[in-house]
């Protein structure tokens, strides 16, 4: 999942590859298979969401979106995302810094622990927090006596979402920072920069594309998390329903078109973030290309 900006091959490079290309038949066969695969698994699901959303006309679509319950679900999802993403970005940066810039015992254990939420079923994740904070859990009575609500309220949803999404940023940054080494940071320090300056002006710019990709994945998962949140939410309409839970609810209320209408907003969000990412990558590649060009021109 490393986000290394794609480099466009120049025309000259392309020409020189003639001897190493497949026959046109094989080439187009491969392209056809790849296109078919992406048609079934990428394009059709995407188109289907919107087709279903508009199946009953635009009015139904619009009514579904402006319904107070939809709006409150959106508000909750945005709130959860706004809390989780900055925290996870912070964690990702800290963890990547500690792991890639220093040697210590138990590093691979730490890396594995960071990866854990990645393959732990979200249901198990939710369950773990119920075991801790549920009324029958370890802290349940204590919290109930103090009127502190964690499970079936916003904090529980935030915790479950945090758990499910925290590896994304760290996972993107670690390989990139590992590959970059720490020579640049050391030079900066030698030149008299303090730690924060080094981090802010040297490290951060060099990992910004990975950070961006990790953040996008993290946002996407925060917005879309279903299993873990479903266990800890309590499904109170208009209060603890996130957008994906609301989609399920609408679907169960015989409002298929409305469910897909709300789902289409999620899909649209997905498309927008993907578009943004592609555009940033493209800009980055262009800048890099310009830089290389300039470098080439300077050299005789």
């Amino acid at each position: 999942m490393a986000a290394i900006p794609k480099r466009q091959l120049t025309a000259g490079q392309r020409k020189s590859q003639r001897g190493t290309e497949e026959s046109p038949f094989v080439k187009w066969l491969l392209i056809t298979v790849a296109l078919l695969f992406s048609l079934v698994f990428l394009l059709l699901p995407l188109v289907n969401v919107f087709a279903q959303a508009f199946a009953k006309g635009f009015t139904v679509y619009w009514d579904a979106l402006k319904h107070p319950n939809t709006l409150s679900a959106m508000k909750l999802t945005l709130l959860v995302t706004a809390i989780c993403v900055p925290l996870n970005v912070l964690f990702g940066l800290a963890a990547a810094w500690a792991i890639t810039k220093f040697e210590f015992r138990g590093k691979s254990l730490l890396v594995t622990l960071i990866d854990l939420p990645f393959s732990v079923s979200p249901v198990v994740a939710g369950l773990m927090f119920v075991v801790l904070f549920g009324l029958q859990g370890y802290f349940g009575e204590w919290l109930a006596d103090r009127e502190i609500r964690i499970i079936f309220a916003v904090p529980g949803i935030v915790l479950a979402t945090l758990f499910v999404t925290f590896p994304f940023v760290a996972r993107e940054l670690i390989p990139i920072m590992q590959a970059a080494g720490s020579d640049q940071e050391q030079s900066a320090l030698t030149l008299g920069a303090n730690g924060w300056q080094t981090f802010w002006y040297v490290t951060l710019p060099s990992v910004k594309m990975g950070l961006l990709y990790g953040t996008i994945l993290c946002i996407a998962r925060c917005v879309g998390e279903f299993g873990a949140v479903s266990v800890v939410s309590g499904h109170i309409t208009g209060k603890t329903d996130t957008v994906p839970l609301h989609v399920e609810k609408l679907y169960n209320e015989y409002q298929g078109a409305a469910a897909f209408a709300v789902a289409s907003i999620l899909a649209l969000g997905a498309l927008l973030t993907l578009g943004l990412k592609t555009w940033l990558e493209w800009r980055e590649a262009k800048l890099e290309g310009l830089g290389q060009q300039a470098e080439a021109e300077v050299r005789p």
């Binding site: 990428l42 995407l46 879309g224 998390e225 989609v247 999620l266 578009g275």
Partner: peptide, 17 residues
């Protein structure tokens, strides 16, 4: 660009579609 779509699409929506 679309390859990342499954990452970005909420899984419940994916299942439904």
């Amino acid at each position: 660009a679309l390859v990342d779509f499954p990452f970005a699409l909420p899984t419940a929506v994916a299942g439904l579609t």
